[in-house]
Each structure stands twice: as structure tokens, then as C-alpha cells.
């Protein structure tokens, strides 16, 4: 089976699948917690209505503004502060200690309006986020490069097909295999660089 051919069936199928995806985007948008979020309230909701969350399990993410005890600010402005009890002991990814400016995500029970008793905490230094963006960008670039090199768009089937020979920069600059094949054939039909190279060969 070849699947939905190359004609209208294919166009209609693509439109249908994209429509289903669009439907999922809207569906997920209407959900209180989308598939990537955790089903607990977080720093976007808790600081605005602290009293309502006392006794509940929540996650709070923010910057460390004090270390003894650990206090995090959930707003970039420095507001929305919470004391996190046991923040260092509950760290999952390092042994600490936490420093001012570190980003911390804490999961636990809101004991009173300004105190969270942490069960699990994660931390990340600002430089680590920068590193992640940089290597992610490189990873993406590598894939795009490989795709451009290995594939071309075929107008006949209106689809991507693998190239017979990978496209490469040196070939684009005329430094390709082609002239060598010419040399074997008609000797008169040479590019200037080729005659230079052949000249060198002759001397040798």
C-alpha cells in the first residue's frame, strides 16, 4: 500500500490531520492543567489567593532571595515571597547549598500563607538555562543542515525525495567530482581550475 497518493486525497488528508491537531490544541487550552503541567496549583495561582491554598499541595518556582532560611520570590520583581522549609534537604538534583539567585522549584504543602514545607525541590543556576538554549539551537541547526544536504523537493510528485548525491558546499563552489570524470572523457573540455590541476599532474 502506498498510502494517500500524490493528488487531492493527499491534500485533503494533510488538511484533516492538521485540523485534528488544531482541535487538540484548543482542547488542551480549555483544560485546567494541560498534558505538560502537573495537576497541582503553582506560583501563577497561589500568591494571588494564599489563604485558599493553605493545607494544599502546591509547587512554587522562584528565585532564592535569602538562604537561611530559604526564601524564594515567585515574581521577577522580588514580590510573592515564600519561606521554603527543608529546601536544601529536599533537593533532588544536587546536594546544595542553595545560593542567592538560584532558581528553585519546590513541591510540598503550604503550611501557612507564607510557608511551604518542601517534599521535593529542584534547582538550576541561571548559566545552565543559557547552556540549554545554546546546545538546543546547535542541535536544531545540525538537523536542518542534514535535511537540506540529504533531501530535495521533487516538483513532479510534490514531495521530498532523498538526493542521489548529498548536496555539499564544496560542490556548490565548483570544487566537485565532475571535472575528474571529464578528464577521463574529452580532454579539451576543461574548466580553468582543472587545467591548472592537470598541469601540476603533468609536471609531477
Amino acid at each position: 500500500m502506498r498510502g494517500p497518493g500524490t493528488g487531492w486525497t493527499r491534500v485533503v488528508t494533510i488538511v484533516a490531520v492538521v485540523a485534528v491537531l488544531g482541535g487538540l490544541f484548543i482542547w488542551a487550552g480549555t483544560m485546567p492543567t494541560d498534558p505538560l503541567e502537573q495537576p497541582v496549583s503553582d506560583e501563577t495561582e497561589v500568591p494571588g489567593d494564599r489563604g485558599a491554598y493553605v493545607g494544599s499541595t502546591v509547587t512554587l518556582g522562584g528565585q532564592v532571595v535569602e538562604t537561611d532560611p530559604v526564601v524564594i520570590a515567585t515574581r521577577a520583581s522580588g514580590y510573592g515571597q515564600f519561606t521554603v522549609i527543608g529546601a536544601t534537604e529536599a533537593l533532588q538534583n544536587t546536594d546544595g547549598p542553595l545560593e542567592r539567585g538560584d532558581h528553585v522549584t519546590a513541591y510540598g504543602t503550604l503550611e501557612d500563607e507564607s510557608t511551604l514545607v518542601a517534599e521535593r525541590t529542584l534547582t538550576r543556576e541561571p548559566s545552565e538555562t543559557g547552556y540549554m538554549y545554546l546546545v538546543s539551537f546547535l542541535g536544531g541547526l545540525w538537523v536542518v543542515g542534514r535535511f537540506v544536504r540529504g533531501w530535495r523537493f521533487d516538483w513532479e510528485t510534490r514531495a521530498f525525495v532523498p538526493r542521489e548525491r548529498p548536496w555539499s558546499l564544496s560542490r556548490l563552489l565548483g570544487n566537485n567530482e565532475q571535472p575528474r570524470r571529464d578528464r577521463r572523457g574529452s580532454r579539451g573540455d576543461r574548466s580553468s581550475t582543472q587545467s591548472d590541476r592537470t598541469g601540476g599532474d603533468r609536471r609531477a
Binding site: 502506498r2 498510502g3 494517500p4 497518493g5 500524490t6 493527499r10 488528508t13 494533510i14 490531520v17 492538521v18 485534528v20 491537531l21 487538540l24 490544541f25 482542547w27 488542551a28 494541560d34 498534558p35 505538560l36 503541567e37 521533487d154 510528485t157 514531495a159 521530498f160 525525495v161
Partner: peptide, 24 residues
């Protein structure tokens, strides 16, 4: 955008990008 990061979303993306846009 979260559905893109689920199995069902991945299958749909695979069906368009990795299948319908590739030579039969």
C-alpha cells in the same frame, strides 16, 4: 501547544511531516 509533546501529537506530526510530505 502542549499536545505536540504527547504520543498522539507525535504520531499526527509524523503522519504529516514524515509520511505525506515524503515521496510515495
Amino acid at each position: 501547544w502542549a499536545p505536540l509533546h504527547t504520543l498522539v501529537g507525535s504520531l499526527l506530526v509524523a503522519f504529516v511531516l514524515g509520511t505525506l510530505l515524503i515521496a510515495p
